[in-house]
Design a protein around this nucleic acid. Structure first.
Length: 325
DNA sequence: AAGGTAGACAACCGCCCTGCT
DNA sequence: GAGCAGGGCGGTTGTCTACCT
């Protein structure tokens, strides 16, 4: 048993739309509106499925759409909202006037995902890769961690192994992390002959972790449950370097004051920051949209995300504008 | 110049939700 | 409450183009 198809597939045209078809559809909708998509192709003289017409209209022909490149601020908004909403493209697109969910999804998949990965940030969790590895280390004994490092991280396994076992390693003996300070961009520029910035960033983060862990960590052994009872492995602040356009800062750990739109909060063992954020979003959305608005409901439904140990952006409530109608 | 490859974007597919009867 | 149609949504695929070898 299956759904009745929305149209006779044998009799409909598929593939790219021609300018003539676009014109027919636009003209018809301008005159009659979008009341019944199943009837629209028939009445407009199009050999298309109603669903195909709807998609063509909503994703391309609508007069209020933007067709140009995404601006920096739009990209930042997408990344921020993705860190909260995940792949809820329609929800994200609702905050970007003139952009469709398809636009946002395509832009994310083709550009932003790679951009974040290139910066050493996992595009799924929005955490630095080094942070993720450190979290893995909390659940594994050293032999397991070594196997994992070897299997999963291949080319830079030695560096990862160092973090997991605290064995000192000279990263090619080329640079001192202390001499470079916290600016990852500078560091990468020093090594412009090397292609994989991600690997270099991870090396950099790990070296910083090694350098500072003795001051910051209650134990040298992240797997030592007596010293580290929290489920999360708290990385030293300086492990998160300043990266152009995507800045980590001590304020990410609970302090206030970082106004960078690209700064983010990292919930480290406590859910306080995330919960504060959630409350703010609730209040803001209820204030602007009413208690029962779709956006407000969406935020409520996302409690599980906020309650998890995940990254939550320092997203000014004003950034959440009313969803487009 | 030709073939291969990757990036960008448009379009499709199928599942799901909602509202109507 | 069940069945159905319309529409929304996220994931995937197809196609075009630019760049590289």
């Amino acid at each position: 048993m299956g759904r009745i198809p929305c149209c006779e597939k044998d009799n409909v045209k598929r593939g790219q739309w021609t300018p003539e078809e676009d014109h027919k559809l636009s003209s018809y909708i301008a005159q009659h509106g979008t009341r019944n998509w199943r009837l629209i192709p028939k009445n407009a003289g199009l050999q298309r499925c109603g669903k195909s017409c709807r998609l063509r209209w909503t994703n391309y022909l609508r007069p209020d759409l933007k067709h140009g490149q995404f601006s920096d601020s739009e990209e930042q908004t997408i990344v921020k909202l993705h860190s909260v909403f995940g792949n809820r493209w329609s929800l994200i697109a609702a905050q970007l006037p003139g952009r469709t969910d398809n636009d946002v999804k395509n832009h994310w998949n083709t550009k932003l995902k790679k951009k974040l990965s290139g910066m050493g940030i996992d595009p799924v969790t929005h955490k630095p890769f080094s942070h993720l590895m450190a979290e893995i280390a909390t659940t594994l004994a050293p032999p397991q961690a070594a196997h994992l490092a070897e299997a999963a991280l291949g080319c830079f396994k030695d560096e990862v192994l160092h973090l997991l076992t605290k064995k000192p390693i000279n990263f090619h003996g080329q640079h001192s992390a202390a001499a470079l300070g916290n600016n990852f961009t500078d560091y990468i520029n020093c090594k412009s002959d090397e292609k994989d910035a991600t690997v270099e960033k991870i090396k950099f983060d790990l070296s910083k972790a090694m350098q500072q862990e003795s001051e910051m960590m209650p134990s040298n052994k992240p797997w030592d449950s007596t010293a580290n009872t929290s489920a999360s492995f708290v990385m030293p602040y300086s492990v998160f370097p300043t990266i152009s356009g995507y800045q980590f800062s001590p304020s990410s750990f609970g302090n206030k004051g970082d106004a960078s739109p690209w700064s983010q909060s990292v919930c480290t063992g406590s859910t306080c920051t995330a919960m504060d954020r959630q409350s703010q979003l609730h209040e803001k959305l209820e204030e602007e949209n009413g208690d029962d608005s779709e956006a407000t409901k969406e935020i409520r439904n996302l409690s599980n995300i906020f309650n998890s140990d995940c990254v939550v952006w320092d997203l000014p409530a004003d950034d959440l504008i009313n969803p487009m109608v």
